[in-house]
């Protein structure tokens, strides 16, 4: 049975308290990691997996690549969590969130802050930096309430895509144990965030789009389809390929994005969220990912 967001948050908040953890002390953080010693990301999840370039790599090359790929994954999830915390903070204690929703937003923000600390400890210590985002915000005209929907859709996409990877890697004994644990801890919190995000976004969508014109709705749907596709490209980072010793990073990115095996993977990994968006009218057709 689907629950309303207000019903859901009581239970989610209790679970947050019960399962509290600490990024500084819940893990053993080794001094350093050797990029070539083992896999840091499941091979099947790597952005070049299935491409001709990947086939040409030997085992050591693949391990090294997996080290930079996991740092990229952690980096863009971290940077994607920053506006989540900002947006949640702005939205708490407003008329429409006062009460149980705001109480839960405190947990959400608290947990996202821990995630950022966790990813930052990893990337700064082992990579020596966080891979920067190459995004530039350009304001556009919005319908009433659209800003809210844009915000929650962004949250759902970064969390859902990240969670597909977390769920696979938390069970993968082939990869570095610290990485496996980070994925496990992240997934535990994200499962609750996603349950809340879906319920709350669906309610807001109904509320806000009631008064929109068909043109306003279409513009939003068009944005969401393009944003969804664009979010996937975060995984294909030319700087990662360069750091792993591969030449022609920009070209590798284009080839991997266009590769049929990668396309099929993205479609499968997005399926659950696409179905949610279609069911509630956020999208009118499945986007080309």
């Amino acid at each position: 049975m689907p629950h309303s967001a207000a019903e859901l948050v009581d239970r989610l908040g209790a679970m947050s308290i019960e399962r509290a953890w600490d990024p500084y002390t819940s893990f053993d953080w080794p001094e350093s990691l050797d990029p070539e010693a083992e896999y840091y990301m499941s091979p099947e999840l790597m952005s070049l997996y299935g491409t001709e370039a990947y086939e040409a790599l030997n085992e050591t090359d693949r391990k090294r690549l997996s080290f930079y790929e996991i740092n990229n994954f952690f980096s863009f999830v971290l940077l994607g969590e920053r506006p989540v915390v900002g947006g949640m903070t702005e939205r708490m204690y407003r008329k429409d969130t006062m009460g149980p929703i705001t109480d839960y937003l405190h947990h959400f923000i608290d947990e996202e802050n821990k995630h950022m600390v966790m990813f930052s400890l990893f990337c700064n210590r082992y990579l020596g930096r966080i891979y920067p985002e190459k995004k530039l915000a350009i304001d556009r005209e919005m319908a009433p309430g659209e800003e809210d929907l844009v915000f929650y859709c962004r949250v759902l996409i970064v969390e859902e895509l990240g969670d597909v990877y977390n769920r696979k890697m938390q069970e993968d004994s082939r990869i570095n144990e610290l990485v496996r644990q980070i994925n496990e801890f992240h997934h535990r919190d994200e499962a609750r965030h996603l349950a809340f995000g879906r319920a709350w976004a669906a309610e807001l969508f109904e509320r806000h789009t009631q008064d929109w014109s068909p043109a306003q709705l279409e513009r939003f749907q068009d944005w969401l389809a393009r944003y969804f596709a664009s979010s996937w490209t975060d995984f294909y980072n030319p700087s990662v390929y360069r750091d792993a010793g591969l030449a022609g990073g920009y070209q590798l990115r284009q080839e991997a994005i266009a590769h049929p095996k990668q396309r099929a993977f993205r479609a499968e990994a997005s399926d659950k969220l696409v179905r949610f968006f279609l069911k509630h009218g956020f999208l009118k057709e499945a986007p080309a990912l």
């Binding site: 920067p132 190459k134 995004k135 530039l136 350009i138 664009s230 030319p238 920009y250 070209q251 990115r253």
Partner: peptide, 26 residues
């Protein structure tokens, strides 16, 4: 703005070095 992400990566490829995004204005 979504295409701009792609354009920045293309520019980095042309320049052979990364772009400092924090220093950029629309």
């Amino acid at each position: 703005s979504l295409d701009v992400v792609e354009l920045i990566l293309f520019i980095e490829d042309l320049r052979g070095e990364e772009v400092d995004i924090d220093a950029l204005e629309p």
